[in-house]
Design a binder for these strands. Structure first.
Lengths: 143, 143
DNA sequence: GCAAGTAGTAAATATTATATTACTACTTTT
DNA sequence: AAAAGTAGTAATATAATATTTACTACTTGC
């Protein structure tokens, strides 16, 4: 029994990963690490200081100095001194930085939407319900 | 309606990605590209020549020369001359190379299995069925 | 208030990744 | 059998990423 649930889950991973691996295909402007930072900031959706990002991405803070300086120069990030800690600097995504991530999700949306057209109305309902169920249960399993 | 299916799918991605991003956490021995090659070989599950890998991973064959030489030196890959094409060399995973990938999946298995313990028997059955349904329908949607 | 600790920066260095060109040995086409 | 094409290797240059040490300005704990 357990074996079979795991097997289904393992099958799911490549299916979903197909979408995800295409996320960074096009964004040629930015390097791997720069993308990584923007992704992380987008997910956190709040102003972070370098230390936060360093820990969150498991990257040395020394590396971030230049990466973030370049992203700021490019207009993707905004740096503001932290009022509460005068050593620190709060970094947040600019509208341009957010747009980079938004566009990635729009692509996933479009691709998924095309796939949906191949399903009947009944299958679409089934998929919706099954996805909902999976999400609820995976959520419950998480830490 | 469509909006809501997409929304569920978008929610699914981070759930699953949690597992996937941990795949390469520990394998410190190997570089990013070396891991990439081993992953690809593991997925293909057959002997490949450099050209195959080059196309499959969208990497210049010139890059592969050294990557694969190092992997062979490390005992992860085995190189055998192709009998049918004397220019080519067939590369396959050694037991050690397969083990690297196996261990990654074992970790996912274990983590998922721990999560399962938090669910009731009924929920586990629901999850199995819902996952199965999702997999079948996503498969149908793919190219 | 002072010692110890922290956030960020800077610069030097090492390692990886990517790209370009050219070459050998073999295969395919005609 | 000659011409054109292909698989792999080699050497090189540049960019991206990672690591180390050291410094300034500030905060925290005592």
């Amino acid at each position: 029994m357990r074996e079979e649930i795991v097997k289904e889950y393992i099958s799911l991973i490549p299916n979903v990963f197909g979408s995800f691996s295409e996320l960074n295909k096009d964004s040629m402007e930015l390097s791997h690490m720069q993308n990584h930072v923007i992704e992380y900031m987008y997910m956190q959706n709040r102003a972070l200081n370098l230390k936060d990002i360093s820990i969150g991405l498991n990257v040395a803070k020394q590396q971030l100095t230049n990466i973030i300086k370049d992203l700021e120069t490019g207009g993707y990030l905004i740096k503001v001194p932290d009022a509460k800690d005068k050593r620190a600097i709060l970094v947040s995504l600019s509208p341009k930085g957010k747009e980079v991530q938004d566009n990635k999700w729009i692509k996933i949306y479009q691709k998924f939407s095309e796939g949906l057209d191949k399903l009947s109305m009944e299958e679409q309902l089934d998929l919706r319900y099954a996805l909902h169920k999976v999400n609820i249960l995976l959520e419950k399993m998480g830490p």
